[in-house]
Amino acid sequence: MSNELKNNFAIIMPAYNEARRIAPTIAGIRKYSNADIIVVSDGSTDGTVAEAKGAGASVIELPFNMGYGAALQTGFKYALKKEYEFAVQMDADGQHDPLSIQALIQPILRGEVDIMIGSRFLSEGTYRAPFVRRMGMYFFGFITSVLTGRKITDPTSGFQALNKKVMEFYASKAYPVDYPDADVIIMLHRHGFRFREVPVVMHNAAKPSMHGGIINPLYYIFKMVLSILVTLMRKE
């Protein structure tokens, strides 16, 4: 990573109760990048905040738990305020391998695209989703591919790199804060943003996914279908 770009580029990590995972994640990132790391603690009640600060990250503390999307959006709002030109969003639990940061950010720094989406399915990572989840990913991947006219293999990926224009979009009211996902890719497409997928390495998370349980996946499917439908109905 070249030094002149250092101050323009932040890594944004929403974290909810990630003590014992967040410090190794930050240490891992440091091996590959010296970018500023912004951790958004989503109302964590364990040692997440202290651990992240101890590891050298800049920590924003939300007063209560608001969910992944709202925490992520907070990070973008802060990054915009601090006038970062580019950002990488990644998970705090070590699922996203920092080895892939460069592959994500380089095309953005070169101005080739507005947003790069890391796909776990284009690479040889250790990630294996449970059957139902895999079906869901294929289903939404298919819909997203049809609607955007290009092949999207991993529409649920939270490992992305983006420029300021996309950060502004993510910080706006248009961003769906409850489960930002395949619907966001369709929104990006309809707003004319340029995006591309790149292979990234992901590992299985050490803790249950936010899509776990029985009610959550059902709500997720409902929300995603509805969100995609209304996105298509909006004139933008």
Partner: peptide
């Protein structure tokens, strides 16, 4: 809900600064 979210985000960012 939206207003509470925006307020909480603003507060967190303000606190940080």
């Amino acid at each position: 809900t939206k207003q509470v979210k925006d307020l909480a985000q603003k507060l967190a960012i303000y606190d940080k600064e």
